[in-house]
Design a protein around this nucleic acid. Sequence first.
DNA 1: TATGTAAATGCAAATGACTTGCATTTATTG
DNA 2: CAATAAATGCAAGTCATTTGCATTTACATA
Lengths: 161, 161
Amino acid sequence: MTETEDMKLCEDLLHRHGLKNTRTRREVLRLLRQCGGVLTAEDISRALVEEGKKPDFSTLYRILELFTERGLAEKHYLPDLRKYGFSLKAAGHCHRLICLKCHRVIEIDHCPLESFEKELSEKTRFTITGHNLEWYGCCPDCQAAEAEKSAAPERRSGKKK
Amino acid sequence: MTETEDMKLCEDLLHRHGLKNTRTRREVLRLLRQCGGVLTAEDISRALVEEGKKPDFSTLYRILELFTERGLAEKHYLPDLRKYGFSLKAAGHCHRLICLKCHRVIEIDHCPLESFEKELSEKTRFTITGHNLEWYGCCPDCQAAEAEKSAAPERRSGKKK
DNA sequence: TATGTAAATGCAAATGACTTGCATTTATTG
DNA sequence: CAATAAATGCAAGTCATTTGCATTTACATA
């Protein structure tokens, strides 16, 4: 897809969701599409700064919140980073497997909870309105990188946990 | 159980986990045991203030963090409150069903993910190190209260969502 | 195409949960 | 009971996120 086509698509997406088509919104959408996974406000800011733009964090947060409200994106708390990440919303209900090293995301479209949840609701008499389900781990690439590192160890920076 | 017995038990619990037996730690432990569910630092502070004590938040956070490290408690991010809650740790792996109104917690000790997770790991070649799973909903009591309220509506305070 | 208007943005300051440094107090050990 | 290592309180700091407000912009309409 050419860059122009991609931009066109972003504009359409915005319009289809009843959102004004502004430069920063297009950029945020583009980055989310490009990465395909989860980005934090800081990730997005950094990427745009590298391209010579510098949107304010307040604007980014407003955009990300808006995208989430309008069902264009999803917001996930990332416990290891103590902040939120955002990703484009998959059609339909799904869960994620997130690599803790590189933040790559695999979408899991089959929800293994449906039947269990029905049973649970009957047993507890709770109305169940939702659930949180995410898996964390280490993707094959990062496993390989990790294995290599321990084969030829280098100075390790004192990065906090 | 008498209050003294309860205190004794708290002291034992602390000692068994290699923790000094201080007043505030005993109080925090007692509150967690009494409530049986999830409490935030603020919940704990409020409860203690009502009893005429006023531990500093820094102390509470230090204690809760310590309890978590030593496996006495568990820490959960509560997305609707945007902060952490703590509960005594159940023996073994388990998940929670949390009432969004009153924060009552039901522990679900059967994890419906085990077999699914194995399959998932094989398919994606990720090393899966953990998962997040919590259900949210409304407990029977709050459902009843809700039903009553709409039958005989009263002035609603402008409490934020 | 010009233009009025609501909405979006940038900026600065605020918020709120949580953390940290340090001086003081306290639980435990000998 | 004294010594001491650890726990606490206090004040100030951190950091993600939010908010108020003045300015700019997208886009519908003239």
